[in-house]
C-alpha cells in the first residue's frame, strides 16, 4: 500500500499527500519515535497529534521529493525540539564559574593545567535512584533542563546527533565545523551535561 517512489518515476498523482491514511501508516512509528525521545506516553501522544494538525495546515507545502513519512517525521522532530525549548524553565543549577567559563576555555573548568580532574569536578559515583514511573519523568525533566544549559553550539550538535540521529560527518558539514572542532564540542557538552546531572540528580 505504501507508495515507494524511485526518483526516475515521479508521477503527478504522488505529489499530493493523503492524510486519510496517515494514522494507519505512520502513527505507530511517529509515536514510537516520540516516546523514545520524550519518555512520556501522554506527551508523546500530544506531540503526534500536534504533528498531524500542523501537517494538515501545511498540506500544500508537501513536496513529492520527500516521502510522506519523512515529511511527517521532520514536523514531529521540530515539535519535540520546540517542546524541549519551552520546558527550559526547569530549576537546574550550574555553578556561576561554569556559566562564566563560557567560550574561553571550557576544559579549564574541569581539568587543571596538568590535564587532571580538578578535585571538585572529578566524577563522583552516582547513586542510582528508584525507577518508578514518576521518577523517570522527573529525571528526564532534569536532563532536559541540563540540556538547555549547554552552549548553543553544544546544544545544536546534541540535537542533530541524538534527535535527528545524524552521522558525525553530516553534522560537521551542516554546521561547517572541522572534525576536531566537532569532538571538542561533543566532549565539552558531555562534560557539562554530566556535571549538571550529577549536581541536580545523582547526588543526595
Amino acid at each position: 500500500m505504501q507508495v515507494e517512489k524511485s526518483p526516475t518515476t515521479v508521477q503527478v498523482s504522488m505529489t499530493t499527500a493523503n492524510p486519510t491514511r496517515w494514522v494507519k501508516l505512520y502513527a505507530d512509528d511517529l509515536f514510537k519515535f516520540a516516546v523514545a525521545k520524550v519518555a512520556d506516553n501522554g506527551l508523546a501522544q500530544d506531540l503526534v497529534q500536534e504533528t498531524f494538525l500542523s501537517a494538515l495546515q501545511a498540506l500544500e507545502q508537501f513536496r513529492a521529493e520527500s516521502s510522506e513519512k519523512t515529511w511527517l517525521m521532520a514536523i514531529l522532530k521540530n515539535k519535540i525540539i520546540d517542546h524541549f525549548r519551552k520546558s527550559s524553565k526547569v530549576p537546574v543549577t550550574i555553578s556561576i564559574e561554569e556559566d562564566k567559563a563560557g567560550d574561553s576555555d571550557p576544559h579549564h573548568f574541569f581539568f587543571n593545567e596538568k590535564g587532571h580532574w580538578r578535585r571538585e569536578m572529578a566524577p563522583k559515583a552516582w547513586v542510582s535512584g528508584s525507577s518508578s514511573q514518576q521518577d523517570q519523568v522527573d529525571f528526564f525533566t532534569i536532563l532536559r533542563g541540563c540540556m538547555n544549559k549547554l552552549t548553543s553550539i553544544g546544544r545544536k550538535v546534541f540535537d542533530l546527533k541524538y534527535l535527528e540521529e545524524k552521522e558525525s560527518a553530516d553534522i560537521c558539514k551542516d554546521l561547517s565545523i572541522s572534525s576536531s572542532n566537532y569532538w571538542v564540542i561533543i566532549h565539552r557538552a558531555k562534560l557539562q551535561l554530566r556535571a549538571c546531572l550529577e549536581k541536580n540528580w545523582f547526588s543526595n
Binding site: 514510537k32 501522544q45 528526564f140
Partner: peptide
C-alpha cells in the same frame, strides 16, 4: 542511552 534511544522495553503503540 538516556539521550538517544530509550528503546521502550516493550513494543509500544498508541
Amino acid at each position: 542511552k538516556y539521550l538517544g534511544n530509550q528503546t521502550p522495553q516493550t513494543e509500544i503503540t498508541p
